[in-house]
Design a protein around this nucleic acid. Structure first.
Length: 433
RNA sequence: GGCGAGUUACCCAAGCGGCCAAAGGGAUCUGACUGUAAAUCAGACGGCGUAGCCUUCGUGAGUUCGAACCUCGCACUCGCCA
């Protein structure tokens, strides 16, 4: 899945005096503990830091990628990363501001832990003095009895403080309320930091700014239990400038697992980035240097229609996550399908390869376009498909479909394929038997 | 345990016996304009064999010619009291 040569190519931008300055320029520090101390720490000798990922799904998503890349930048600066996958915290559930989570079965969580560990390890080097160390908080939480937990950890926590955490107070003020299970989450995360501080000398935790309450839970606990001063960095929540949620494509999360989000769809997601967001995305999600990004900022300003910045962003992030070969395939598919030429004149092998990148289905020649829209998940029901055709939003081989009764007979391209499109850019491949 | 408020489509939220497949907003989808952008305007947005039928308004029973709306039980959520 990952391309080991990609890790080897990554570097921090040498034009910065320090990694602290670089991550600030990239906009990765939204909140942190004392900046002066943190800067000194990061610019000094190697430290150990950690970031946790909870197994709430079988794959990490784009929000997690922000953390992984921040970790990688710190590793490139010589520091030692601990990649924590939350085998225990995943069983409890981090309180979301809106509603209580449904508990995931324990064996499912265990399975997901394995998937996430594999993903985390792909983004961090396992070579050299500061190779990544993978840890699982189930290892130290599981042996802990309820009595020990309450006596040794619980005593350091004040309920008043716990209630003030954003996630908790939001829930208390909502109709959803909060269970004791989720209320306890912050203690478990604090315990993780304490454990890693003791075992590895870990002195920095990173996470999303929405996790700030959980991050400070750990720094406070370490101060109380060990009189230690440790640090935390909260990265900004990535949002779209139009106010919609970042990291959603067609209403679904964009996953790092190619089986959940195809490299083609992943590439398209980045290619469709708004002008207003693209420069910030280059800073956060790529290893391009400041001069390179400045140049793209000018291109967005002066020649936005060429979409150079979006193309480069999509290329960089897709190859980072899916490797060069998959990225090339995604680009070739896009060029073939969005090109100006007649689809029938494309080389059949090229076209077929492109369609393999898309959601696709195999069918008999008499199949109706409506049924194919449903089969390829371009539409969620026949009624939805019918409406799409009536609204003039469906194209077969780039020709607008005008009848709801149309079958693909007569529209099959050389090589026994057809291209079904909904709207401007949602495509699916049809293979005719 | 007691009292009160609540549970409506992806989310928020109106509806309080027939004109309810259910207002409004958001999200989403499509069209026009474009640059596979944004903004704007327009349309769509439970399902189906689409001018009709079917299944929905926490859940189960009931009243009624007729219930999202009334009654009773149950579950869950929130608040106050104990």
């Amino acid at each position: 899945m990952s391309d080991p040569t990609i890790l080897a190519q990554q570097t921090n931008d040498p034009s910065f005096d320090s990694v602290w300055e670089e991550i600030n320029w990239r906009g990765l520090v939204h909140v942190s503990t004392d900046e002066t101390e943190l800067k000194a720490l990061l610019d000094g000798g190697p430290i150990t830091y950690y970031c946790g990922f909870d197994p709430t799904a079988p794959s990490l998503h784009l929000g997690n990628l922000v953390q992984l890349l921040l970790m990688r930048r710190l590793q490139l600066a010589g520091h030692h990363p601990l990649g924590l996958v939350g085998g225990s915290t995943g069983l409890i559930g981090d309180p979301r501001p809106t509603a209580e989570r449904t508990l995931t079965p324990t064996d499912t969580v265990a399975e997901w832990v394995g998937y996430l560990q594999a993903q985390v390890s792909r983004f961090l080097s396992s070579e050299g003095d500061n190779a990544v160390t993978l840890v699982n908080n189930l290892d130290w939480t599981s042996p802990l009895s309820a009595i020990d937990f309450l006596r040794e950890i619980g005593k350091y926590y004040r309920v008043g403080t716990m209630l003030k955490k954003d996630a908790v107070s939001a829930r208390l003020n909502s109709e959803a309320g909060i269970s004791y299970t989720e209320f306890s989450y912050q203690i478990l995360q604090g315990l993780d930091y304490l454990e890693l501080f003791r075992s590895y000398g870990c002195v920095l935790q990173t996470g999303g700014s929405d996790q700030w309450g959980n991050l400070t839970s750990g720094t406070d606990l370490i101060r109380r239990a060990e009189s230690g001063t440790v640090h935390a960095i909260g990265t900004p929540l990535i949002t779209n400038s139009d106010g919609t949620k970042f990291g959603k494509s067609e209403g679904n999360a964009v996953w790092l697992d190619p089986n959940l989000t195809s490299p083609y769809a992943f590439y398209q997601f980045w290619l469709n980035t708004d002008d207003a967001d693209v420069v910030f995305r280059l800073k956060v999600f790529t290893f391009l240097t400041r001069p390179e990004i400045d140049r793209f900022a000018e291109l967005v300003e002066n020649e936005p229609f060429r979409r150079e910045a979006q193309r480069r962003l999509a290329l960089e992030v897709t190859s980072l996550v899916h490797g060069q070969a998959a990225t090339d395939a995604a680009i070739h598919a896009a060029e073939a399908l969005f090109g100006q030429g007649d689809l029938a004149e494309l080389d059949p092998d090229t076209l077929e390869a492109a369609l393999r990148e898309l959601p696709n289905t195999t069918t008999a020649p008499h199949a109706t376009v409506l049924q194919l829209l449903v089969d390829t998940e371009l539409s969620k029901s026949l009624g939805d498909a019918r409406r799409a055709v009536q609204q003039g939003g469906v194209y077969l081989n780039n020709e607008k479909v005008t009848s709801v009764d149309l079958t693909i007979e007569g529209s099959v391209l050389p090589g026994g394929v057809a291209v079904l499109r909904r709207g401007k850019k949602t495509l699916a491949g049809i293979f005719v038997e």
